[in-house]
């Protein structure tokens, strides 16, 4: 497995927990009160509860089932059923490598994390799940460029391939540039994480978001037809 985007930074706010999937890896991604992001196997070592149902208390994630607290390093440091007990060091959440870069949270579940550097990606647009393989999603967003924001001469360029990142650059104008990082969930599910250059207005973000819906619909339709 490789480095994959799992969320826009903006969409995981302080003290929030979310679930993300990469192939067979089910994970809990959370942000502490001070802003530290962690991605863990979605299984509490105690009794297997999905940690994505847990809640953040300060710099700890507490499991929803019996409230065991894990710090940002994944170590369990508090067991409410035994408040006096110092939990053994061996009780640890299984943590993955994560990085936050270019407004995106990147995770590698099996090795070092290598985020894709997208220097001018500054405005978060949205993340959108699409029921198709990653190549179809890539193809969909390359072909169906947005008419009001991207000129007809828009260049679609794949600027990275593990994971895939697509740049849509308008030629010869100061229109908005768009970046899409593709999360390979499994062979039939992709999530497109979309950002834009800093000249994107609120209206542009709304328009790009609608465009993403259209691309999803068209892409899912043609993926369904070709099956």
């Amino acid at each position: 497995m490789s480095t994959q985007p799992v969320s826009l930074s903006r969409d995981l706010t302080i003290k929030q927990v979310m679930r993300a999937e990469l192939g067979d890896v089910d994970m809990a991604v959370w942000r502490s009160a001070s802003g530290v992001v962690s991605a863990w196997e979605n299984r509490c070592p105690h009794r297997g509860m999905r940690l994505s149902h847990g809640f953040v208390r300060g710099e700890s994630l507490a499991c929803a089932y019996h409230g065991w607290h894990y710090n940002c390093a994944g170590a369990c440091h508090y067991i409410p059923a035994h408040p006096e007990l110092a939990p053994p060091k061996t009780i640890k959440a299984n943590a993955y490598n994560i990085a936050e870069a270019s407004g995106i949270i990147w995770v590698n579940a099996t090795g070092n994390v290598a985020p894709i550097d997208i220097p001018s990606s500054t405005v978060p647009v949205r993340s959108i799940p699409i029921a198709c393989p990653v190549e179809s999603a890539l193809n969909g967003f390359s072909k169906h460029t947005h008419q009001s924001l991207l000129t007809q001469h828009t260049q679609a360029e794949i600027i990275a391939d593990t994971p895939y990142v697509l740049a849509l650059t308008p030629v010869g104008s100061n229109s908005v540039g768009v970046y899409i990082a593709f999360q390979h969930v499994n062979d039939s599910t992709t999530v497109a994480h979309i950002t834009a250059t800093d000249n994107a207005s609120m209206n542009d973000v709304v328009a790009l978001s609608r465009w993403a819906n259209e691309v999803r619909d068209i892409t899912e339709f043609s993926a369904g037809v070709s099956e």
Partner: peptide, 28 residues
């Protein structure tokens, strides 16, 4: 139910070592 439908693995592990009990879990 909101807990039970979110435990992994779905089947109960009977061999020790797969989950970590404490004193409170002696019944289990």
């Amino acid at each position: 139910r909101s807990i039970l439908e979110n435990q992994l693995p779905k089947k109960l592990p009977l061999d020790p070592g797969q989950e970590i009990p404490t004193k409170a879990d002696y019944t289990s």
